[in-house]
């Protein structure tokens, strides 16, 4: 799980171009949207691409992702259960 969480953080930092951030800067339970990292609707779509590209998970839409994308920990939990690659 630790490795998965770290990989997710790296993938998020890379795909979302979070300038100057390292995995240590993102707490596992930090909210990703709103306050927290301040991601927005386009970033949510980008997270859907990450799940598809690296883990073979197809989320139908961003609203389905709302629960999943609360924090890196919730994403990791979802990925661990649903990954196909």
């Amino acid at each position: 799980m630790e490795e998965l969480i770290n990989n997710l953080k790296l993938q998020i930092i890379d795909a979302l171009n979070l300038e100057g951030m390292t995995p240590e800067d993102i707490g596992n339970d930090d909210p990703l949207f709103g306050e927290g990292l301040g991601l927005d609707s386009i970033d949510a779509l980008e997270l859907i691409v990450i799940l598809d590209k690296f883990y073979g998970i197809k989320l139908a839409n961003a609203s389905e992702g709302k629960e999943v994308f609360k924090s890196v920990a919730t994403i990791a939990d979802y990925v661990a259960k649903h990954r196909t690659k």
């Binding site: 795909a15 979302l16 171009n17 386009i42 970033d43 980008e46 691409v49 598809d52």
Partner: peptide, 11 residues
């Protein structure tokens, strides 16, 4: 590349 168009690039 497969088919992974990036919303952040697309926009």
């Amino acid at each position: 590349a497969g088919f992974y168009p990036s919303p952040a690039v697309c926009i």
